[in-house]
Simulated assay, not measured.
Amino acid sequence: MLSFKRQTVSETVFEIVNAIIMLLICFLMLYPIWYVVINAFNDGEDAMRGGIYWWPREFSLSSFNAVFRSEGIMTAMGITIAKTLIGVPVHVFFTAMVAYAFSRKELVGRKLYMLIGTITMFFGGGLIPYYLLIRDLHLLDNFLVYIIPAAFSFFDLIIFLSFFREIPQGLEEAAKIDGANDFKIFYKVILFVSLPVVATIALFHGVYQWNDYFTGMIYMNDQNLQPIQTYLYRVVAQSSSNQMLAAMPSGVSVSVTSQSLKLATMVVTTAPIVVVYPFLQKYFVKGFMIGSIKG
């Protein structure tokens, strides 16, 4: 028969208190998001009166109608989607290729390269030298500023490297016997057996590309090349919401306010990654665990 260990009173009290504290933390983290959502779906003028805490008092889609009629936000959404779809495979390919070279014992100066790369993880040249570098590379107001500087990450290289070191040497030796060169071994063998870590790094960089607003804010003066998060920054921190309100088509309800436009824009810009992230959380955890346990 199965025997169950009886909990002491102190253990029971601890679990109850622990559950209450965790529920309170979850509430404090989730309620601000819920507050933005319910106010975004409420009538703009009615929301100005306040008192909306749990659900919309006067449900309305006027604010979202105004947001989606704005050419600026759709252009920014297209830029974000484009830089994510292009930047992720470029980043994964180049970072994995460098990590594969670092995993080869015959690489001359490997320890020196690792030392230099590790230093760059903690120390940088600063924003002004980096801006001057971007300017000299003619990447200002250039879509490639989202792709080229982010094509490599030493942190992601370490994750790749931990995985590559666990791949049996026999796979490479068998490929060499079949006449494959280093590039074919990397492309057809190493990447193929490394799909879990490839998916993990792709998710890391995909979230970064979607959430990055700083690059567009600093290096893009052309608003037609700014991503959705930079657009959100301009709407929330500047007077862009008033400009959107003034430029609304005549068919949009007059109940839309600058505040309701800000909230609706926040929901539109963050909804895709918020919806996708919970389903991808396990890959993030797995990515941090890769190489941490040796058999």
Results as ranks from 00 to 15, higher is better:
F4T: 15
R6M: 14
E11P: 01
F14G: 12
A19W: 01
I21D: 07
I25W: 01
C26S: 15
L28D: 00
M29E: 02
P32K: 06
Y35D: 03
I38N: 00
I38G: 06
E45I: 13
E58R: 00
N65R: 10
R69Q: 15
A76I: 14
I79E: 11
K83A: 04
L85C: 01
L85Q: 09
F102K: 06
E106F: 09
M121A: 09
L127W: 11
Y131V: 00
L133P: 03
I134Y: 05
R135M: 09
S153I: 14
D156Q: 12
F160K: 03
E166R: 13
E173M: 11
A180H: 04
D182I: 08
F186E: 10
Y187A: 14
Y187W: 14
V189P: 01
I190E: 10
L191Q: 01
P196R: 02
F204K: 03
G206K: 02
V207L: 15
Y208R: 12
D212Y: 03
Y213Q: 09
I218M: 01
Y219K: 11
L225S: 00
P227S: 00
I228K: 06
V235E: 07
S240H: 01
G251A: 10
S255N: 14
Q259L: 13
Y277F: 15
P278K: 04
F279W: 13
F279I: 04
